[in-house]
Each structure stands twice: as C-alpha cells, then as structure tokens.
Design a protein around this nucleic acid. Structure first.
Lengths: 248, 248
DNA sequence: CCCTCCGTTTGATCTGAATCAATGTCTTTC
DNA sequence: GAAAGACATTGATTCAGATCAAACGGAGGG
C-alpha cells in the first residue's frame, strides 16, 4: 500500500476548513463530487453528547473543529475515555449499525458527516477511500496501544506529563516538526475528563498538575492555559522512550 | 462496505490449516494463486522472540497455530502487553518499515508470512484484501479500547476474570455461539505474562487466581489447566456490562 | 533418588493513589 | 455586586496493590 501522506481522509470533504483542503490527485472527479453532495455538517456545544453507546448510528463523520471524546462506562459509573478526537479524526465504523462508545463534545465542535449507506457503497467503488481509512485506523490502533502502556504501567505524574505532551503536540498543529523549547496551549479537557482519560481520580490529576507546576515543568494561567518552557523536560517526565508516535 | 463475515483474511492463504480454509467467492483466481505463491511459513518455540521493536520487518503474517504476544517496554524495564495474537490474527503494518512492538511466541507458534512489498502491491490491485484488513483492524481497535477500560478502571480481581473470559472464549473456538455453563481450557500465558497484560505484578495475579479458586469461580488442575463451572458467574466477576465483544 | 531451576504461592510490610472532606476561585445570573 | 453553581485545589486518612522476602512444587538432569 502506498503512503498517502498528503491526502488526508478529509480530502474527500472538499470545502471543509483546516486539513480538508488537500486535493487527492488520484480520485475521479465525479466520485469526489458525489461525496461532496453526500456531506452535511453538525455542530455541538461543549459538554453536549453527540451519540450514546448503543444508539443507532446511520452516519460516519470527520471532526472539522473542536475536540470530542470517546468513552465507555461500566454499570456502576466507572468511566474510561478510549479516544480523543481532534480535527481530521474520523468517527464511526462502516458496517456497524450502532455506536460502540459515548461520543461527547469536549469543546464546541463541528463535524462533517456522511450518511453511512452511500458512504459504504462509495468505499467499494473508490478503493483509495478504504485505503486511507485503513491507514487512519492503524494510526489509531497505535495510539490506543501507546495508551495501554500509559494506563497499565505509568505513574500518575508520568500520565499527566504524557497527556500534556500529546495535547501540546496536536493542539499546536505542529505537523511533522518535532516540537522542542517553549510551547503554549489550552487544555480542552476538565480535570475530571483528564482523570477519565488517564485512569485516575480528578483529585490526583489536580495534585500532579500542581506538582509539575511547583517543579517548573509547566506553568498555568487560569485553569486551562498552559505554558511548557522546555518540551523535552516534559517528555522526560512522561517516561517516553521514543518521540511518542511522530514517526510512521 | 459489505460485511465479509465468512471470509477471514487468512482465506487468501489457501492451504493453511484451521480458519484458513474458507474460500472467497469474490476474488479472481489468479490473484489468489499469486498470494499462494508469495506465502511461506515460520515456526517458533515457546518463549522465542519473533521480532524486536525497531527491527526491520519486511513481512506481514497471520498466526496459523499457537499464541503470540505484542508488547512494549519502557527503558527501566516496565513492560505492557498490547496485544494477544491467536490463530487467524494478523501481524505487521503495511507501509511501515520496522516493527513497533516486540512480538514473542507465548506457546509454540506457526505463522504464515508474506513479503511486504508484493503484499502491498497486491492490496492495491485486489481491494477486498484491504477491505478485509480494515475490518480486522477495526476489530482490533475495539479490543484495544475494551482493554483500555480494563487497564484504567477495573480492579485486580475484575482484570483476572476478564482475561480468563477472553481466553476461554477464544481458546474454546466457540465462534459466535455465546458460551455459558462449564468451560475448560489451558492458559497460554505464565503468571508474569498475565501480569504484563493486565498492568499488575505477578504476585497480585497469583493471589487473585487463588481468591477466584477459593470462591469457586474457577478450579485449577496444575498451573495451567482451568475449569470454569459457570461462565456467567465469571463474566459477573469481570464486571462486563456487555458480552465483551461478541457482536460486531 | 536427590539436586537444581523455574515458575508459583503465600506472607509481611510499604506506598501511591483513592476516598472523604473542606475550602477556594472563577463565571453566570439576576 | 451579591448569590449560586460549577470547577479546582488542598488536606487527612484509608486501602488496594506493589514490594520485599521466603517457601513450595513439578520437570529435567546427573
């Protein structure tokens, strides 16, 4: 399979902002315009639920702007986030009728949606859509596995540092440039959401953030605005042995 | 995308045993025989390393028999398994030059391999291979996310019960029949490997297995042979709210 | 048969994060 | 600009699982 680095899945979604501008040289024009006809947008406010696990889901979608979360909940209320969806990320599984996870807007959110049935038909006639989707799914699987290491083996402090590093990297839209030095960004998650992502309690999240602040690894302005004076020092705290998934 | 339920990926691998016997009605004969020419087998003994993370990996493969594990290790030695590969599971990522994880044979293992280059070329000319691979990858992503819930939020006892349930289901080759009542199987993992999978220490694994035995949820013959008198009772201990991924 | 090795079990103690409980600080609303 | 409510911090205490330590049991070898 060829690398399609310059063609984001969202390329199919011609008019969307952000990463949706790339043009796929390979796809036939009429297919592209069919996709263009199929798409529609939905907006959600911060905190709103996009879909509940188990609900019928007759669309697939791509995040245009904002941050959404995927989470699972046990009967007794214990919750675990299993995905953080940032612009250009894909939601929904072709071939599945109902949602497997709760999808929630962490910030104000815009998604570009496609009805599932015609999208699935199009996947058959236009193979490179499926190829791109496979690549994105493999990337997500790698992220999930990196997250398994975090959940199973990292300390609370390492977990927080790792999450900050991930958000910093993606929020800053740094692309393939390896970040270093001073980085500034906003947290799109509350302490509780961070806790649900990291397998911690919100109190522990708060304490560890305070500890990182006290140690000069980060500084905070308000609750959400974070400055990292030395990104490599943060990575050190995260216990990552590699660059954390910048390479493919 | 159509459901290809009856066509396992390994269908492309005509002569392999076990689940490799299914025939894909859709693929052109000549493509199938090209795949047949490409394939070769490799065997490993229990405990042998198939490939180290970072090593050059010029093949993709499918497990024919036995159990393999995928794991990640931090510099200080903390290890986390991120995948359990059972017969028909796929290893390797098209488009990636080096292995991202350590792959180890947990039991004696046979894999059916394809050189990556021709395999990737074939993926382009024979789209349904890619479609099948996408479906398998999405299944793995779901398993990984279920595992994230386990690692982040379950207690040690629930973790053990969940792992036993997963092994029981797959080891017993129960297909889509929902198991219940008495189930007997062998553990393919040592206590330490179980610990690395569950984000626990081997001592905790041992203690919790003893506790489940004392409570009559399981009984053991030797260290490896497990009897579950009531599978539903085991699921109860696992804290699963659903059937744990039997549905698609 | 005894010895050694490796995986396992069990016991004693410690500790990192959870839990329980105030208190603090924004933001919104009237 | 006071009141309410949501979110966050900090402190005191508890507890599940880690760590440290010892003993057990079966398989293979001499």
């Amino acid at each position: 399979m060829p690398m399609l680095d310059t063609v984001s899945f969202a390329a199919e979604c011609g008019a969307c902002p952000i990463r949706h501008r790339a043009v796929c040289a390979r796809c036939e024009e009429d297919e592209l315009s069919r996709l263009e006809d199929m798409k529609y947008y939905r907006s959600y406010q911060a905190g709103q639920t996009v879909i509940w696990s188990g609900d019928r889901m007759d669309f697939v979608a791509s995040v245009v702007s904002g941050v959404a979360t995927l989470s699972q909940t046990m009967e007794d209320g214990r919750r675990q986030m299993v995905g953080l969806l940032l612009p250009s990320d894909f939601v929904g599984r072709p071939g599945r009728a109902s949602a497997a996870y709760d999808v929630t807007a962490a910030t104000d959110l815009v998604m570009c949606c496609f009805r599932k049935k015609p999208f699935e038909e199009m996947m058959i006639t236009t193979p490179h859509i499926g190829q791109r989707l496979l690549e994105m799914t493999l990337d997500e699987l790698d992220s999930a596995r990196e997250w398994m290491l975090l959940l199973g083996r990292k300390t609370a402090r390492e977990k927080i540092a790792s999450l900050l590093a991930i958000i910093a990297r993606r929020d800053a839209s740094l692309g393939l440039t390896r970040p270093s030095g001073r980085i500034v960004f906003d947290l799109p998650l509350t302490r509780e959401e961070m806790a649900d992502y990291l397998g911690l309690t919100l109190e522990t999240v708060s304490r560890q953030i305070s500890a990182l602040r006290k140690d000069g690894i980060i500084s905070l302005e308000g609750k959400r605005h974070v400055t990292v004076p030395d990104f490599d020092a943060l990575l050190e705290e995260a216990g990552d042995d590699s660059d954390g998934g910048m390479l493919s």
